[in-house]
């Protein structure tokens, strides 16, 4: 696994929901990318210095493409959203550890995503679906994906194509009315490992549910980042134990993460 800066061409880009964009890049990083990892894109406006971390929504090694689904949150992502086919962008990657996919073997897997936490789980769902029939196959996979409302629903069909998917909406405009954790409880979903990504309150609730049931739960965390490669120590998460890098209780999300065993995080 190596990290580098490269220039990638945009193959296509579209808006999936309000402010949520789907960008496909032509890049050899597609051969290395694993679910849960991320890349960081540089702005062409050099007054915006820092690369923007974006999770990988899927990678097609054969086609040499990387799919990124992201939300416009400021000027930097705003700049990316205006790129179209043929334009290019500087990419730092592949970054982060990714989900430990081998632990899904023979397990009843639950994928839990919320909002912009949904995209990286699609990559994982695809990999788990590809494993079907092999030794590495999970026993079953269910995805529970939460959205604010119908207008902000995206990637639902992509999920349905590869796995058993349950959608939830905060306002009841579609799917289950409530949070993903409400849905897991209401439907009494039976699982023995969870992989998740989403807003902190969602992850906290899921981690607590899994702790009560004594089920292993992996969470993907986010934090404001600067370097993306573990030198600046900007993006740390509080851990229950002493971290290996600094011997304190602050682990680097960009390098030791972004995926952590929920029991290692100080919630």
């Amino acid at each position: 696994m190596s990290k580098n800066v490269s220039v990638a061409k945009i193959i296509k880009q579209s808006e999936l929901a309000e402010g949520i964009y789907d960008m496909v890049l032509d890049t050899p990083l597609s051969a290395e990318a694993a679910p849960g990892q991320f890349v960081a894109l540089y702005c062409s406006d050099s007054s915006r210095l820092l690369p923007r971390p974006i999770s990988i929504c899927s990678a097609d090694a054969a086609a040499g493409t990387l799919r990124l689904v992201y939300r416009v949150v400021g000027a930097g992502t705003g700049e990316f959203s205006k790129l179209s086919a043929g334009d290019s962008v500087r990419v730092l990657g592949v970054l982060g550890n990714g989900y430990p996919i081998d632990e899904a073997r023979d397990k009843k897997v639950l994928l839990v995503g919320g909002g912009l936490g949904v995209p990286p789980l699609l990559f994982l769902a695809k990999k788990l679906s590809e494993a079907a029939g092999s030794d590495a196959a999970p026993a079953a996979v269910t995805a529970v994906m939460g959205y604010r409302n119908l207008g902000l629903r995206f990637l639902s069909e992509d999920f349905s194509a590869v796995t058993n998917a349950i959608d939830t909406s905060d306002d009841g405009s579609f799917g289950f009315h409530g949070t993903v954790v409400d849905a897991i409880k209401a439907k009494d979903l039976n699982f023995d490992i969870a992989y998740s990504c989403g807003p902190l309150p969602m992850l906290r609730a899921l981690a607590s549910l899994c702790a009560d049931k004594n089920i292993k739960c992996y969470v993907s965390l986010e934090e404001r980042m600067a370097c993306g490669v573990g030198v600046c120590l900007g993006c740390v998460a509080k851990t229950t134990g002493v971290d290996a890098h600094s011997l304190v209780k602050n682990t680097r999300i960009c390098t030791e993460g972004p995926v952590f065993d929920s029991r290692d995080i100080e919630w």
């Binding site: 820092l50 980042m225 600067a226 120590l233 900007g234 740390v236 011997l247 304190v248 209780k249």
Partner: peptide
């Protein structure tokens, strides 16, 4: 001895610059 640093957020981008409080 090991120093644990400050709480997050520790970094913020500013025009042609950044703030850090690691």
């Amino acid at each position: 001895t090991p120093w644990e640093g400050n709480p997050t957020p520790r970094v913020a981008e500013t025009p042609s610059g950044m703030l850090n409080a690691i």
